[in-house]
């Protein structure tokens, strides 16, 4: 399980936690989040994300 941070907006995604409020189950890999998903924080579409792995 990895943790990611978007370099555009600072949004963090932890694969272990998922985003249950957004319908993303715990354990969902970033790459498996649907393409039509948008950021719950800033509204950015998935293809605008620039995810970097964080430790």
């Amino acid at each position: 399980m990895k943790k990611w941070q978007c370099i555009v907006c600072g949004f963090e995604y932890d694969e272990a936690e998922g985003m249950p409020d957004e319908g993303i189950e715990p354990g969902t890999k970033w790459e498996d989040i649907p393409d039509d998903w948008t950021c719950p924080d800033c509204g950015a579409p998935k293809d605008d994300f620039e995810m970097m792995e964080v430790d």
Binding site: C9, G10, D41, C42
Partner: peptide, 10 residues
């Protein structure tokens, strides 16, 4: 820009 703005909002 979006990045600084979102940091401020949080």
């Amino acid at each position: 820009y979006v990045g600084p703005l979102m940091q401020c909002a949080r």
